[in-house]
Computed example of a mutant assay.
Amino acid sequence: MISAHPVFRFAPSPNGYLHLGHAYSALLNFDLARQADGRLLLRIEDIDVTRCRPEYEQAIYDDLAWLGIAWETPVRRQSDHLDVYIAACDRLAAMGVLYPSFESRAEIARLVAAEEAKGSWPRDPDGAPIYPGAGKSLSATEVTALKRSGAPMALRLDMAEAIRRVGALFWQERGTGPDGETGAVAAHPEVWGDVILARKEVPTSYHLSVVIDDALQGVTDVVRGQDLFWSTSVHRLLQELLGLPVPAYRHHGLLRDETGAKLAKSLASTSLRELRAEGATPVDIRRLVGLPSHP
Rank of each mutant, 00 (worst) to 15 (best):
T50Y: 00
H19N: 07
E72G: 13
P74R: 12
R76V: 14
Q35V: 06
A65K: 13
T50I: 09
D37P: 00
L32M: 15
Y56V: 05
R53D: 08
I60G: 07
I69Y: 10
E72S: 13
A26Q: 10
L18C: 11
D46T: 05
R76W: 13
A59D: 15
Q78Y: 03
F30I: 01
V49E: 14
V49I: 14
V75W: 03
L67S: 11
A65D: 14
E45D: 15
P74M: 06
A23N: 03
L67H: 12
I44A: 05
A26L: 11
G68K: 11
R76F: 12
V75Y: 05
W71H: 02
D62M: 00
L20R: 09
P6Q: 08
Q58E: 14
V49A: 15
E72V: 02
P54K: 05
L40C: 05
I60P: 05
T73F: 05
L64G: 12
R51H: 12
R9H: 10
H19F: 02
F10D: 00
S3K: 10
I44L: 06
P74Q: 12
H5Y: 09
E55W: 08
M1Y: 09
R9Q: 08
D37C: 11
L64Q: 04
A33W: 02
R34P: 00
I44G: 01
A11C: 09
E45C: 06
R39T: 14
F30V: 01
L32Q: 15
A33S: 15
R53K: 15
G38V: 06
Q35P: 01
A70V: 13
D37F: 04
A36F: 04
N15Q: 07
D46S: 04
A4P: 12
Y61H: 15
L64E: 02
H22I: 04
R39L: 12
Y17R: 13
I69N: 06
E45N: 03
L32D: 09
A59E: 14
H19I: 10
D31I: 09
D31P: 00
Q58K: 13
S25L: 15
D63E: 07
L40P: 04
W71E: 01
G16M: 05
R9D: 08
F8I: 02
P74G: 08
H22D: 12
P12I: 05
R34T: 00
Q78E: 10
A23S: 05
Y24A: 12
N29P: 06
A70M: 02
G68R: 08
D63R: 04
R34K: 14
L20H: 08
Q35L: 14
G16N: 13
R76M: 11
I2C: 00
E57Q: 13
L18A: 10
H22G: 15
S3L: 07
A26R: 08
D31M: 12
P12G: 07
F10A: 03
Y24D: 01
F10E: 02
D37Y: 01
A26S: 13
Q78T: 09
L64F: 11
A33H: 02
L67E: 13
R9S: 10
T50F: 01
A36V: 04
